[in-house]
């Protein structure tokens, strides 16, 4: 599937122009969507291949990767509790809240905090094939409407969201309901691609939970 966001970059490359302005534009979009350098480069590569063009030289590769790094650095310096693209909480805010839940009482260092047992992460994800703004809006809408008010609802990436939920009442059943409802609203692609919703238990250690969230955000 050709990524239309790459069009300015592919055009610049085709015309032999300096790729940096177009790369910066496309990279900024990728950073907003939380996409990795691999995804960015592979998307560019696939677009060039689809157009029958030769692979880019080293200088272009370097410009493109620097543009991605600049865009991500800009995102890094704008970190706040709210994710600017989705309006939901940021990954960093989710990390903070999970850290708070799992913090142990200093007087009882060996006693794991019950937060890990009582809370779960409900994760909802759209496949790339269903990625579109209206679909993302529906996904967000489902999560906001079906989770209790005040829930920490975070944008893990451009197409994956998570809610930090009390395990009871029945977080896994809620996941099933959201899954069915989303599939009804968005449909299933010809190849059977459909939204996925599931729950992740929290590790008892802060470090483990931090790692889990970082992995889910990749």
């Amino acid at each position: 599937m050709v990524d239309r966001r790459m069009t300015p970059l592919v055009e610049a490359y085709r015309l032999g122009r300096d790729p940096r302005p177009a790369a910066a534009e496309v990279a900024a979009q990728c950073a907003r969507d939380g996409e990795s350098l691999d995804v960015f480069l592979d998307g560019f590569s696939a677009c060039l291949a689809a157009e029958g063009m030769t692979p880019p030289d080293s200088a272009t590769w370097r410009s493109v990767s620097l543009a991605w790094a600049d865009a991500y650095s800009a995102r890094y310096h704008r970190i706040s509790c709210i994710d600017e693209a989705s309006g939901l909480h940021s990954v960093q805010h989710l990390q903070s809240q999970v850290r708070l839940l799992l913090a142990r009482e200093p007087s009882r260092p060996l006693l794991a905090h019950p937060g890990a047992s009582t809370y779960v992460l409900l994760v909802a994800e759209l496949p790339v094939e269903l990625m579109a703004s209206p679909h993302l809006a529906m996904l967000k809408d489902e999560l906001i409407c079906r989770t209790p008010p005040g829930t920490v609802l975070a944008a893990l990436s451009g197409r994956r969201y998570a809610a930090l939920l009390h395990r009871r009442p029945a977080a896994s059943e809620l996941a099933g309901r959201i899954d069915r409802s989303l599939s009804d609203r968005l449909g299933v692609t010809e190849r059977g691609h459909r939204p996925r919703v599931w729950t992740e238990g929290l590790p008892h250690e802060i470090e483990g939970a931090s790692h889990l969230i970082a992995e889910l955000a990749r």
């Binding site: 350098l37 991605w68 790094a69 991500y72 970190i79 706040s80 509790c81 960093q92 790692h211």
Partner: peptide, 22 residues
């Protein structure tokens, strides 16, 4: 250089996603 770029990007994203608001 390509290997360095990909590795740097991977480590940078991990760092970014493991940050808290603190």
């Amino acid at each position: 250089l390509r290997l360095a770029g990909r590795t740097w990007a991977d480590a940078f994203m991990t760092r970014l996603n493991r940050l808290t608001c603190a």
